[in-house]
């Protein structure tokens, strides 16, 4: 190893460690401010207190927003899993042209501007006479979650040995049963990772949802931004810390079952 190599590696590590600090900074700051006793964001807090956590109870509409967001995230992810499994099997096993185009198309909502998709859906739903906010949101959230599921499933099914399915078929299983009993358990890590990121994307979506909500159906991100405009006190840091805690729990469970390696491979 030459001198230059050593300098390069040292430099890469220095930037890498700086990057870790940079990435963790917003998380640490949010948690630290949530325990302040003052009503402004001074750091370090003058005194530690739980008052902003207690104040969350008094936030009107917060619990309803959490429920709606969880509901949309669960149901849309489940629908995307079903649609995504079928489409990914077709791409992996079917013999037809344009497979790459299908893969690009199904993953493309990830790279489209959210607000534009939201506006387009709003105008479209109005045109076809769909006025119910919940159903509009649910349809939109399937579009949000499907690309995450497709991305992991396409990658993992490309590497799956489909002769296992044929073997199960010769043993007398029907095709749908073979998929359910052989393919899905084998690809469980992909389902968990894809499902997890799909779920989180749905929970976090603001730009598409903002056009489809009404006064009664407000998702958590919309409610949070509304609180920020109306009354920006550290209770928002407390709310964020709750979401951080949730993310940590989910990640601990996911890394125990799937492994962090697999989660970042997609």
């Amino acid at each position: 190893m030459t001198q230059t190599d050593r300098i390069t590696i040292f430099f890469a590590w220095a930037v890498g460690i700086g990057c870790i600090i940079f990435l963790m900074l917003p998380i640490v700051i949010t948690v630290a401010t949530s325990f302040t006793s003052s009503s402004v964001y001074t750091l370090p807090p003058p005194e530690w207190s739980l008052r902003w956590y207690r104040s969350l109870e008094r936030r009107s509409g917060l619990w309803e927003a959490v429920q709606l967001s969880l509901n949309l995230a669960f149901i849309s992810t489940a629908i995307s899993m079903v649609l995504g499994t079928m489409a990914a099997i077709a791409v992996a096993r079917g013999e037809f042209r344009g497979k790459q185009a299908i893969a690009t198309f199904t993953v493309s909502p990830l790279m489209m501007p959210g607000l534009v998709v939201g506006v387009a859906m709003l105008q479209f739903f109005r045109e076809i006479g769909l006025r119910d906010a919940y159903w509009s949101l649910l349809l939109a959230h399937v579009v949000i979650t499907l690309p995450f599921v497709m991305r992991t499933l396409l990658a993992s099914m490309g590497a799956f040995d489909f002769s296992l399915i044929d073997a199960a078929r010769t043993l007398g299983m029907s095709y749908p049963r073979a998929i359910l009993k052989v393919l899905i358990p084998n690809l469980a890590p992909a389902y968990l990772t894809g499902g997890l990121f799909a779920f989180l994307a749905s929970m976090d979506n603001y730009p598409i949802s903002i056009f489809l909500t009404d006064a009664r159906n407000k998702t958590l991100p919309i409610k949070m931004l509304q609180y920020l405009e109306e009354q920006p006190d550290p209770s928002l840091a407390a709310m964020s810390s709750g979401l951080i805690l949730m993310a940590i729990i989910v990640l601990v469970v996911a890394s125990r079952t799937v492994g962090l390696n697999r989660m970042i491979e997609t």
């Binding site: 917003p26 997890l196 949070m224 993310a247």
Partner: peptide, 13 residues
């Protein structure tokens, strides 16, 4: 961990 957190949380921070 940051990837699993919402944009609002990070932008607010």
């Amino acid at each position: 961990l940051p990837m699993s957190l919402g944009v609002i949380v990070k932008a607010f921070a």
